[in-house]
């Protein structure tokens, strides 16, 4: 199965800029479907980026984050060709992770 995570990490030699796009419904639990029934909450709660065995960015999310969430940040260091590990877990216990090469 293709990963739900698309990540692009680009180093300029000094800092690494990371952009990630994740496929996830991010249902808040406040929206009704066409039949007027509440769509139960289903959203990513934690998203972690790890470089060199250490977390470089940790996100705690609620249902207020947009569907197919996007996030952007930068960290100092990070070498071209090195791995950046991305993983998430949602409120139903599902998880996914991927590893991207820094470009």
């Amino acid at each position: 199965m293709a990963s739900s995570i698309r990540v692009r990490a680009t180093s300029n030699g000094d800092t690494t800029e990371v952009q990630a796009l994740i496929q996830h419904p991010m249902d808040s639990g406040f929206v009704k479907d066409a039949k007027g029934e509440i769509i139960p909450p289903h959203f990513i709660q934690q998203l972690t980026f790890e470089y060199d065995g250490k977390p470089v960015f940790l996100a705690d999310w609620g249902g207020g984050v947009s569907k197919d969430p996007y996030v952007k940040f930068s960290f100092k260091g990070g070498k071209k060709g090195d791995d950046l590990k991305v993983s998430w877990s949602d409120n139903k216990g599902a998880t996914d992770s991927t590893t991207a090469k820094i470009q």
């Binding site: 977390p55 996100a59 996030v71 930068s74």
Partner: peptide, 17 residues
């Protein structure tokens, strides 16, 4: 909506939707 933890070495700048 969202809370991000910024370890030392990570720049204090975040973009999201």
């Amino acid at each position: 909506v969202a809370s991000y933890r910024i370890p030392a070495g990570t720049l204090p700048a975040v973009g999201n939707r």
